[in-house]
Computed example of a mutant assay.
Amino acid sequence: MTAVGFTEVDWLRLKAAEPPRADPAVTTEVDEYWTHRVLDNPTLFNGPLVAAAGIRFEEAGCDLQWFRSDYAHYLWRQAPGSSEHRPYARTIYVATVARTENGGILVGRMADTTSSPGRIQLPGGNAEPPNDEEFVEGTLRNHAIREFAEEVGMPPPAIRLWAVKTGGVGDIGVVYSTNVCTTDAAAAFSRVRAEQAKHSEFAAVLELVPSPSGKTVSEPVVDYLPVLLDTLFGTQRVAVRELEASVAARV
């Protein structure tokens, strides 16, 4: 794992690349591990996703190369043994930093039915490859909007491209920014949980607000969260509030 970093960008260009050459032994290993994971969690679905082939930063923006992959290759990174040379496991995802009126941000706690139960992360998800349409930054922006609406229960107010995350486990994150009202978000999430409890990605939506008397988040967290908090707040000490219940939650 390498150091996580957020590089602010004004633009993003996407370019298709050739996928790694298929290795029969690798294919067998991926299939066997996927079968094992599905036995543990039958709700998993091997859908398409976008993998990163390379990235190059330029002044105020970056070029990002991608190829088509799938969720089985994404989960393959978690198989026993070294994951350093697993080319299919480095995905491109979108995420949204939703700033609140209290000076904090919204995050979600992943549901038990997901591949990472209990993990704390931003609203978002792995990017999906296009069908026939052009794959551009606007495609990722629309995907970020859709993921936020599905997970939080409401479309985000106007979002803008903010940064690209690199490092950590190797995934490339295209991160957007918006502002939200916690009252609206709490009501929206309560509705979506009532309607889609068994299919919701998030078990809870939390507000993290910087606080000298707060604590560092000790639950399982996505690789970028500590650095994100330092970048936004200059500290990892936060007060945590669960929006749905509108009570303080210890994390």
Rank of each mutant, 00 (worst) to 15 (best):
L44F: 15
K165D: 03
K215C: 03
G125A: 06
P48G: 11
A127N: 05
L14Y: 02
V107N: 01
A16I: 10
V180Y: 03
R68Y: 05
E29L: 13
A79W: 05
S211G: 09
G103H: 08
P156W: 01
Q196E: 14
A204F: 01
P117T: 06
L206R: 00
A204W: 00
A248R: 01
Y224C: 03
D132V: 15
V94I: 13
W34V: 04
D31G: 08
G125D: 04
T114C: 08
N131L: 12
A16F: 01
W76E: 04
V94K: 02
L232D: 07
A149N: 12
A17F: 10
T183Y: 05
R241W: 01
T183Q: 10
E59K: 12
T216I: 00
V174P: 02
V238H: 00
R250C: 01
E219I: 00
E201A: 13
A51Q: 03
I55R: 09
P155A: 12
V251R: 00
E18L: 11
G118I: 00
G103T: 09
E8L: 09
T2A: 10
Y88N: 07
F189T: 02
G167L: 04
A3P: 07
T96Q: 07
V50L: 09
N102G: 14
P87A: 08
S82N: 15
L49N: 09
D132R: 12
E29A: 15
A127K: 02
R56M: 11
T113Q: 14
V192I: 15
D230W: 06
G167D: 05
T231D: 07
N126M: 13
T7D: 11
L229K: 02
R13C: 10
I120K: 00
Q236G: 10
S83V: 12
A25D: 14
L243K: 02
V164H: 04
S177E: 13
A3L: 12
A60D: 11
E242K: 00
S218Q: 13
A111F: 00
P156F: 02
V26L: 09
V222S: 11
Y33L: 07
D10P: 01
E58D: 14
R13V: 09
